[in-house]
């Protein structure tokens, strides 16, 4: 991230170390992950140790320290989704794309993430693909969603 952009984010949060979490979220919103150089820069600008920035970035599940893929597929692993077979959905994406949960495919096509509930538990199992929510998932539906994604990409 260039300095101007970073400074805009820092200024928005009054360069207040208490707002570190929000600052890191804003950086991730732009970069799709937390680049190490940006974290270092944040530490320098806020005059806090890098270790503090790093511990924040590793403590919270929302942050990714690695670049993420073009598409992000998030499977809910909350209790309601679990009892309705969420683990099978994760397995299926893992098999289909040869990617581990939390990882990204080698071609940077897709990142598979899990989340502990997104608050639509009545429609479980639930997954979010690029921000779009899909409820009551099963193997067949998942297949359709992922195939659509691949097709859409082949077209581009």
């Amino acid at each position: 991230m260039d300095d101007t952009k970073l400074n805009t984010i820092l200024d928005k949060h009054h360069r207040d170390p208490a707002e570190l979490l929000a600052i890191l979220m804003d950086i991730q919103a732009v970069e799709n992950y937390l680049p190490k150089d940006d974290m270092k820069q944040v530490a320098k600008e806020l005059k806090i140790p890098f270790s503090k920035v790093y511990s924040m970035a590793t403590f919270f599940a929302t942050f990714s320290l690695e670049p993420r893929g073009k598409h992000i597929c998030t499977v809910c692993m909350g209790t309601a989704c679990h009892v309705r077979g969420a683990a099978r959905l994760v397995d299926q994406v893992q098999r289909d794309f040869e990617v581990e949960a939390g990882g990204t495919t080698d071609d940077m096509f897709l990142t598979l993430e899990t989340v502990n509930c997104v608050g639509a538990c009545a429609l479980g199992p639930l997954m979010i693909v690029d921000g779009e929510y899909h409820g009551n998932m099963d193997a067949g539906k998942l297949d359709r969603v992922l195939r659509k994604l691949k097709k859409q990409d082949a077209k581009e």
Binding site: D16, P17, A18, E19, L20, L21, A22, M25, M56, F59, F60, A61, T62, F63, V115, N116
Partner: peptide, 20 residues
């Protein structure tokens, strides 16, 4: 905004999180 940590719902952890 929280960052996706269950323990942050606990009162003292929540306050630590607000403090940065």
């Amino acid at each position: 905004k929280g960052g996706g940590a269950f323990v942050c719902g606990e009162s003292t952890a929540l306050m630590a999180s607000i403090e940065g």
